[in-house]
Every structure is written in C-alpha cells, then in structure tokens.
Design a protein around this nucleic acid. Sequence first.
DNA 1: TTAACTAGCAACCTCCAGGTTGCATATCAT
DNA 2: ATGATATGCAACCTGGAGGTTGCTAGTTAA
Lengths: 125, 125
Amino acid sequence: MKVAGRSRCSTFKNMSASRKAKQKNHAPVFAALGDETRLTLVRRLANGEPQSISQLTEGTELTRQAVTKHLRVLEGVGIVNSKPSGREKLFEFNAHPLNELRDYLDLVSSQWDDALSRLKAFVED
Amino acid sequence: MKVAGRSRCSTFKNMSASRKAKQKNHAPVFAALGDETRLTLVRRLANGEPQSISQLTEGTELTRQAVTKHLRVLEGVGIVNSKPSGREKLFEFNAHPLNELRDYLDLVSSQWDDALSRLKAFVED
DNA sequence: TTAACTAGCAACCTCCAGGTTGCATATCAT
DNA sequence: ATGATATGCAACCTGGAGGTTGCTAGTTAA
C-alpha cells in the first residue's frame, strides 16, 4: 500500500519545474498557523473527518463566533475547505498549503546549507 | 562533501527518539514567520553571513527601530542569534527552529495521510 | 407546525503588533 | 579630541486581530 511517501532532496540547485514562478506569499499562511487556537483546529481537522462549526467549538473555551472567525482565516489561506451540508457547514483539512510551507522551509534551509558551504570553502581557501 | 542531507520518512508511527516530549509551542514560531518583513529578513540572513541592524535596515523602507523590533521577535523564537561585535550587533541565522517547524508540518501531514487511509479502509469495508 | 439546532451578520470592545520620533550612549575613524 | 556611526530606550500613535453579545434566518426532528 503506497502511502504517498514524501522524500525530498532539498539541496538541489536546479529546481526547474515545480519552483517556476512560485514567489508566493507564504507569510499569510504562516500567520494563519501563528495562533494556538487555529493550530489546534488544524490538528483536529487533519486528524479525521470534516466537522461542523458547532462540533469544532466544543472543547474550546471560545464562542462559536470566535471559532468561526478562526476558521475563516484558515479557509482564507486554503488550509481548510468548507462545504455546506444541510443546516451545518462542514470544514475539512486541505494538505496542500502546508506542503508548500514545508517546501519553502526546505528551500530556506538549503540556502543556509549552501551559505555555510561557501563560507567553509572560503575559509579553507 | 557531506551537505547534511535531509531525508525523512514522515509516515512513521514509531517516532521514538526525536519526538520525545516535544509538545512544543510552535505557534509563536509560525507567528514570527507570519510577517513579510520578517520573512525577508530571514531569507536574507539564511543566504549569507551575519549582518548588523543597519545593514539589514538597508533595502527596507522601514526605520532602524522597526527592523530592530522585527529582529527581536525573530530572536525571541530562536530563528536568529545576535552577538555584539564592536559597536554593532550582528545577527545570524539559526536553522534549528525552522527544521522543527518542518518536522511539525510533516507530522500533521502524516496524521492526515493516516486519516485518509482509515477513511478509505472504512469505505472499502 | 412548532421547538431545537446551526449558522450568518453587525456592532461593539480591548489590546497589542507594527511603526514612528526624539534623545542618550557606546564605539570607531581621523 | 571630535565628529560620524551604531545601537538602545522610552513615549507615542494607529489599525486591526481576537473576542463578545444580540438578533435573524434556514434546517431538522418531534
């Protein structure tokens, strides 16, 4: 059973295809995750099936409205999607933005590795 | 020359060593990256040698004080370190927190994969 | 057909992140 | 010694994030 194994070679200069004009705005996505409540919601949705606003409000110490606002923030950057189902509105996790963040962090780390290499080479020279 | 190759198997139930009591607060780190100015500073520092506040202020449209505050935020979560050097204060990148974020994103993604697997198994049942 | 449940909208409040300015202080170059 | 440079500190301002409450409206179950 293939489980969508993620293996990446981050120190790769020639990032041709995937990294085309991907100068995306990652800051808003980071910001969306920069809140404990929102992180909890994300973990919760990434852990199972879609849930309604009322369901997601349970376990929180917040109002439904507050949770709604948080969900809107998450939806605004694509971390969750919503679909109406009867009288409720179900939110489901979407892994794509988080994967992009992961790739971005890899990119920055690889830049750092390269910088260290250059520095080391310079010193050894 | 070994370049600290990063290869991970994220869908791994038995995360023994590294994931001990690592219930860390990731939200503040995400929040620190959730600002375009700060992201730019990080990229800049991850791209080369330590730089002073004045240097980092160049290229920005902000005041030195504003940049200072941003740097303090980044330092607060460990993304950068600072060391005084004469009359200036040099900031250097520290990859560790970003690596932890990457691992965390991997963890959430793997939870999502598992959830999908369970759902699939349930449907096929 | 009601009563209970789920969600949206709008107004409002509070606090702090992000930014500025002004002044003080340490260090470097000449 | 002195002027230029680099930073720190404190006060201040403003907008928006995060939260609440009250009311309205659609959907479901009895």
